[in-house]
Design a protein around this nucleic acid. Structure first.
Lengths: 229, 229
DNA sequence: ATGACATTTCGCTTATAACCGAACTATGAT
DNA sequence: ATCATAGTTCGGTTATAAGCGAAATGTCAT
């Protein structure tokens, strides 16, 4: 009774189809301009502007002015987390006419979640790092072990980049399709960056889905002992 | 772009103040009748009936007919999880005129979350069980160890009750006020039941808040090594 | 049967907010 | 200076759904 209205406030903001689509678009972690978001959700820029102002006011997104552009991004991981939680409901909620098309399959296989990797591939990676002792389970999140530091350093990650922000290093993020956590936080972002830089992963233009290149498939098996499909 | 509408569907349902209030009321795990829910959210029974039908249709709540009553409960833990995630947004989102009254403090200290214990007390309990080896961290949830079985069995929990359902035994549930997981699942429910049976905890009538009795304070220190405040 | 209570269905009113067109401001390019 | 592009503000239309009163259905008690 006391917290109802607070919940409703956030949920109502996410509950509008246009806004939900914009937020989903931002789930891929990058910042997008107002017009791009308008286009993504199929509404005119004026309307999008209004929506974005409200999302911004409620601290669900953050704006960065850059020249005449305004770049919007999700305000923090909690927003992404809430969106995934809602996704979970939608997925195994009402089993309505909701055929899982090829696109959905691609999403389940590998996708970005905020700025890190999710889906079967993301979960497998986290499992691999856990089993070789690079990560360990902490109460609240994953923790990077000393072995993990050297291992990932050898792999080419610049771990010093992580010390700057006050962002969590290795958060656990529940995967809606796998129902098992994958690796988020600054480390998750860094890892995604690295894999993308190696051309092991290829981002799809208009989707959060990510495809695994041939090199990526081989690399994941060689470096992480992951064999998919 | 593809998942936006799905998210919006669930979020819009939660986004109505009356419905959000009803769902919040159900967060305490018990099942409530339609009229009780109507009263809780300050609307007439007709209106509540409509809302509940929609929530039920979307599988956010489940109904159980019992005579002329209809008992509603949250459909599963995922719903509770999503509500907590939204709560997290609301809390540290917009820092608006939102004075934390004494009621909020009570909630932060101890409250029910679905059908288990949350807040400082809930988190402390989970930590205690972890550190004495009763629970261990699994990838997806907590796991009850053999030591834990005997420990909790000695405490008086009837662990056989848990083997029936296909419900997770010891899920981890992120606490919105502590930002650290507490113990959910069948085991969490059992533990709450036990503590309540011992009169260590007292549920408040119209709130999820729970108070710790004198016996409870002493008991928690003695049995679990937890000293609060 | 009859009355009491829980819940739902129906019809209607009303408030909200999503949306767009048009006009305006700001920034950058030529 | 002038034009184009990104974004916002304003005004007005329209669809949606939340809400209630009234009446119907269902269940239990006497």
């Amino acid at each position: 009774m006391i917290e109802g209205p607070y919940i409703a406030e956030a949920a109502a903001l996410i509950g509008d189809p246009s806004r939900a689509t914009m937020l989903s678009a931002l789930m891929d972690g990058r910042a997008l301009t107002a017009t791009e978001l308008a286009y993504a959700s199929g509404i005119t820029p004026q309307t999008a502007s209004g929506h974005l102002a409200r999302l911004s006011e409620a601290r669900l997104v953050e704006v960065e002015k850059q020249g005449r552009h305004r770049y919007y991004r999700l305000a923090n991981e909690h927003v992404a987390h809430a969106l995934e939680a809602l996704m979970t409901l939608a997925v195994h909620g009402a089993p309505r006419h909701r055929p899982t098309g090829p696109k959905d399959d691609a999403m389940r296989f590998a996708r970005t979640c905020y700025d890190h990797l999710a889906g079967r591939v993301g979960v497998a990676l986290a499992q691999s790092l856990l089993s070789d002792g690079s990560l360990k389970q902490n109460d609240k999140a994953f923790a990077l072990t000393p072995q993990g530091e050297s291992r990932l350093g050898n792999l080419g990650l610049d771990l010093t980049k992580m010390n700057k922000g006050r962002r969590a290093v290795a958060s656990r993020c529940l995967d809606w399709s796998e129902r098992t956590p994958h690796l988020g936080g600054a480390l998750g972002a860094l890892l995604l960056e690295e894999l993308e830089g190696r051309d092991w992963l290829l981002r799809m233009p208009d989707s959060r889905a990510v495809t695994l290149t041939k090199a990526g498939k081989a690399g994941l098996r060689k470096e992480f002992g992951i064999s998919l499909d």
